[in-house]
Write a protein that binds this DNA or RNA. Structure first.
Lengths: 189, 189
DNA sequence: TTGACTAGAACGAGCGTTCGTTTTAACCTG
DNA sequence: CAGGTTAAAACGAACGCTCGTTCTAGTCAA
């Protein structure tokens, strides 16, 4: 792993554990065993580290969602796969979910668009839009339908990250999906 | 308004606008026109300001939810009133919602329980629990049902706070409620 | 006069960042 | 291949500044 990637990985862990502002550059250099000079060679400043990390995670999410979009035909299968993916990530790599969903990026990345406007969220709304066109999902405001379809899952994820769940999220997917799909489905089968 | 309350009000605005860590005690003293000495007379430290603010907002929420719980008999009416209340607050006092729902309190109030475990959230789950007992809401895990019932609304609120909505949240309540209640209702009427 | 309150200058710790230097690696050129 | 040259990468001590907090002096109602 390149020093650059080591720094990003370390920053991800520290930012998600202690938060951006409670993590000093010294913490990052100490934990990553990369010197101050090197860190500043790869990144303009502390904000640059966070921006690069955020960008890379957004891109990863984007490509995973694109795969899901291609692998499944129906919006129902797509959206369910998305929730399953999110639950898996939250179970296996909680730091990633913490940094993506449970962090107020605006506080330290003021130039970034809010996460709701990011590409991955837009991809999820696109799935809902297609579901409406195909008649799978009731007609309505796409933003509202998306919020209600994915909102329950996102709340479950934050509950899990807060330590409220004793079992892995993965075990809840059937129940969560049952509620969520019922909310927006054109007809319950 | 007492100096203490002035400080809390100022802190609420600044914390929600710029975040806790981007708000200095100097910002608070300047904006509130209360001197450093006075602020430290009323509060132990910066964290004490945030803790008092958080506490007062939790208590306010708690009492409003209790009123709702008493004013409405059915879980359906209770939960709908809760969402309506949350939307109203988000429309009229966005700083309050930003500080309550869109802030990672753990970063600066490490001793506080996560918001999901707070009394107001517990009250909301209690409404769902009663709804299950009364047969209004399908049997299931209360946490999952609550997440799915309120998750859509909470996502709509964060969308509004992010500036994604052009109209007040209040105008969305019928549509959001239609989706949300369908998710958990024992039978759709 | 007393005691709660106000005031803001002063303090020291810790932060993000800079900078001068050393090390490494790659690439010429004869 | 050997020797010389260069640029990129790595290093970490040191800097300057901002922050939260403290402290001492002053104010004013009771």
């Amino acid at each position: 792993m390149s020093p650059r990637d080591t720094v990003l990985q370390t920053a991800l862990v520290l930012f998600s554990q202690k938060g951006y502002f409670n993590t000093s550059m010294r913490d990052i250099t100490r934990e990553s065993r990369v010197s101050t000079g090197s860190v500043y060679h790869y990144f303009r400043d502390k904000e640059g580290v966070a921006a690069a990390l955020y960008q890379s995670l957004l891109e990863r999410m984007q490509s995973e969602l694109q795969q899901i979009s291609q692998q499944h035909e129906s919006a129902e299968a797509q959206c369910r796969a998305v929730i399953s993916l999110l639950f898996d990530i939250a179970d296996v790599e909680p730091e990633v979910m913490t940094f993506m969903l449970y962090t107020k990026h605006r506080d330290f990345l003021p130039s970034e668009r809010p996460i709701c406007s990011s590409v991955p969220f837009e991809q999820m709304r696109e799935m809902v839009r297609r579901g409406m066109q195909r008649g799978e999902i009731r007609q309505g405001d796409v933003l509202v339908a998306s919020s209600c379809l994915f909102g329950g899952s996102i709340r479950m994820i934050t509950a899990a990250l807060d330590g409220l769940l004793l079992q892995p999220l993965n075990g809840f997917i059937d129940e969560v999906w049952d509620y969520s799909w019922r909310a927006v489905a054109a007809c319950v089968d």
